[in-house]
């Protein structure tokens, strides 16, 4: 139990250091843009395919029940709200935790055990700014974009099923989706995506940056980065829903 609280304390200090150093010049712009490309590009295909399939499966599974209640016309609004409010952000964040979080954990862990981080420090570069701040910032800014992309493909997958099974046109389907969606649905989901990005980036960097025990430690860093950030995502999601409930009266 003591080590759990030690870990929470260290992670909090690491996050505080990110905020302290992240907004103080010099800024590593070129490394930041490189990381944005890495984070976005690394996950784009997986997020897209997963979103598309989830949209289709969700529609296929819900359709018989809605038909039973004569409510199949509610399908676009139901899918739209579910995807945009909850499934899209959480699913995308979980995929990114697996793909980006473990990648960052392994990369920084390997740099730590091969003394590359020390070499950076000795050369007069602040490795925290160069490696951690740029990666966390990239996660924060890219995750909402990946969520939008995943949401769009999930809705398109849902539309395809509806089009095939119910002969619903593209315009009709998306008119109903956007009629059901309000500003109060988009804002919280976008806002929580920033926090999901922060959690994935910070946990991945924290595990990698503080990696020890040689090459075995690199594997542990990558693995625990995924486990801890996934757990953190659900906690953050719960908190986000609670806050949203206060402001928008779900």
């Amino acid at each position: 139990m003591g080590s759990f609280f030690d870990e929470v304390g260290d992670l909090s200090r690491f996050t505080a250091r990110f905020f302290r150093e992240g907004f103080r010049p010099p800024f590593e712009w070129s490394e930041f843009f490189k990381q944005c490309y890495n984070v976005g590009n690394r996950s784009l295909t997986l997020v897209g395919i997963t979103g598309f399939i989830i949209g289709m499966v969700f529609t296929m599974q819900s359709r018989p029940t809605l038909i039973e209640f004569g409510a199949v016309s509610w399908m676009p609004s139901m899918v739209g709200l579910t995807i945009v409010r909850e499934v899209g952000p959480v699913l995308t964040a979980l995929i990114c935790a697996g793909r980006i979080g473990s990648g960052i954990g392994a990369e920084l862990g390997s740099m730590r055990v091969t003394e590359q981080i020390d070499a950076m420090e000795v050369s007069g570069t602040n490795p925290f700014k160069y490696l951690v701040v740029t990666r966390v910032m990239a996660c924060i800014f890219m995750l909402p974009l990946l969520v939008f992309f995943g949401d769009a493909l999930a809705l398109y997958g849902s539309y395809l099923v509806e089009n095939i099974k119910g002969d619903v046109s593209f315009q009709l389907y998306f008119n109903q989706v956007f009629d059901a969606l309000a500003f109060g649905d988009l804002l919280p989901s976008t806002f929580k995506s920033f926090f999901f990005g922060l959690a994935i980036g910070v946990v991945g960097c924290y595990k990698g940056y503080n990696c020890s025990k040689g090459t075995a430690g690199v594997g542990v860093a990558a693995n625990t980065a995924v486990v801890v950030s996934s757990l953190l995502l659900f906690i953050l999601d719960f908190m986000a829903v609670m806050v949203t409930d206060i402001f928008y009266d779900l």
Binding site: S110, M111, T114, E115, D118, A119, M120, V122, S123, T125
Partner: peptide
């Protein structure tokens, strides 16, 4: 101060040129 690390500690995501240019960025 120059430092030669035991395991060389070259940045493995950068070319030799970028490795050598890296210390020059700060100075």
């Amino acid at each position: 101060i120059g430092f030669l690390f035991q395991g060389s500690a070259l940045y493995d995501s950068m070319t030799v040129r970028e490795n050598l240019e890296f210390p020059l960025r700060r100075h």
